[in-house]
Nucleic acid binder design. Structure first.
Length: 188
DNA sequence: GCCAACGTTGGC
DNA sequence: GCCAACGTTGGC
């Protein structure tokens, strides 16, 4: 990692992945706000600590069964220690975390918008201007990812389009060279 | 359920 | 400091 550009940029855009904490849960929170805990990856931690600022925009992505960008949120508090790392019973407990050296960080986000139409991963893959997105890289596992304002806006626009008229997903020629494995229907 | 990609750990 | 083994993530 190179030198950090300490907030020379006023408003960045990000994508947050979540598997079980859904956007419906965020919507149900008091003030539609939550702290984004449980990130246990140093690269993501560094972004939470150094790069994510109040006012930054967030795309909310469901991994797991739905695999779609489902809405947007706003950062309302910049990086601070993730106290759940020190809670013995927490899922993401880390015995190395201490009060002096909390190691892990989190930010607060507030729900902005639940998309009328979630934008599925498969559809994102068909959009040429999004081809550079970290999310679309094979094997991408970062749960906090930077996105460009252009990518952000493109996805919001897609969510405002009717899904049917412009062919939903993978029907169009995919530009991927990957050999396609056979996909099985998920059970449960 | 399978497996590729990735991060972390630990032996040396 | 290297790297193989291992565990996890997450798309399919």
């Amino acid at each position: 990692m190179t030198a950090k550009t300490k907030s020379s940029i006023t408003s960045n855009c990000w994508l947050f992945k979540s598997e079980c904490y859904l956007i419906s849960h965020l919507k149900a929170e008091p003030r539609r706000t939550t702290y984004w805990d449980g990130v246990r990856n140093y690269q993501a931690r560094n972004m939470l600590r150094d790069d994510i600022h109040v006012g930054d925009r967030v795309l909310f992505y469901h991994s797991g069964d739905e695999r779609a960008v489902v809405g947007t949120a706003i950062v309302t508090r910049a990086g601070y220690p993730d106290h759940t790392a020190r809670e013995r019973d927490a899922q993401h407990f880390d015995p190395k975390a201490t009060a002096e050296n909390p190691i892990w960080m989190m930010v607060d986000i507030r729900l902005e918008k639940v998309f009328a139409r979630p934008v599925p991963l498969a559809e994102l893959r068909t959009v040429r201007s999004l081809s550079g997105m970290e999310l679309l890289r094979q094997g991408s596992r970062l749960s906090i990812q930077p996105v460009t304002p252009e990518q952000f806006d493109t996805i919001v626009e897609l969510s405002e389009q009717a899904g049917g008229e412009d062919r939903p997903a993978a029907r169009r020629n995919e530009t991927k060279p990957r050999p396609k494995g056979k996909s099985k229907a998920r059970s449960t």
